[in-house]
Simulated assay, not measured.
Amino acid sequence: MTDSRTFTEQARRAQLVDATIEQIARRGLAGASLARVAEATGITKAAVLYHVGSKDALIAAAYQRVLDALVASVGAAIDAAPVGDRPAVYIRTMVAHLRDNPRHVRVLAEVGREQDVDHASEARWAPLAGIIDAAAEAATEHRAVAKRGATAVDSRALALIIGGAIDGIVAERLADEEFDVTSAADLLVSLLPGH
Rank of each mutant, 00 (worst) to 15 (best):
S121I: 08
E22T: 13
A88G: 10
A129P: 11
I161N: 04
L29S: 01
V189W: 03
A150T: 15
V37R: 03
G194H: 08
R124N: 13
L108M: 14
E39K: 12
S190N: 12
E110K: 00
A96G: 10
R113Y: 05
R106M: 14
A40W: 01
Q23H: 13
V48H: 01
L174S: 05
A69C: 11
R103I: 09
E141S: 13
R92Q: 11
H142D: 12
K45R: 15
D116N: 07
L70Q: 10
L108F: 07
V111C: 01
D133Y: 10
T2I: 09
L29I: 02
E172R: 15
D116T: 07
E22V: 11
V48G: 01
V170H: 00
G53R: 02
E9W: 13
V17D: 00
D79V: 04
R173D: 07
A135C: 06
W125D: 00
A135F: 08
Q64F: 11
A38T: 08
H119F: 15
S33W: 05
D3N: 15
G164R: 10
H97T: 12
A57F: 10
G163T: 05
A171T: 01
L67W: 06
E137Q: 14
D133E: 14
A136K: 00
A81W: 04
V74Y: 12
D18Y: 02
I21Y: 00
A96C: 04
V17P: 00
F179V: 08
I166V: 08
V83N: 04
W125N: 02
R173Q: 07
D167N: 14
S190T: 13
T44E: 10
R5G: 07
E114R: 11
R13K: 14
G42N: 06
F7G: 14
L160A: 02
E114S: 15
D154G: 03
L192T: 02
V89E: 04
I161E: 06
G28M: 13
A81I: 05
P87N: 11
V66N: 01
V37K: 04
A88T: 00
D68K: 03
A76Y: 14
I59D: 03
V105C: 07
E22K: 07
T8P: 10
D85A: 15
G112E: 01
G112C: 01
T151I: 11
L174R: 09
D3Q: 10
E122R: 12
K55G: 07
I24L: 08
H195P: 15
W125R: 00
T41Y: 05
L98D: 00
A60Y: 02
K55N: 03
R26D: 13
A129F: 13
A35T: 10
L158V: 09
S183C: 12
A150L: 10
A19W: 05
S4F: 12
E122D: 11
E178M: 15
N101D: 13
H119E: 14
K147Q: 14
D167F: 05
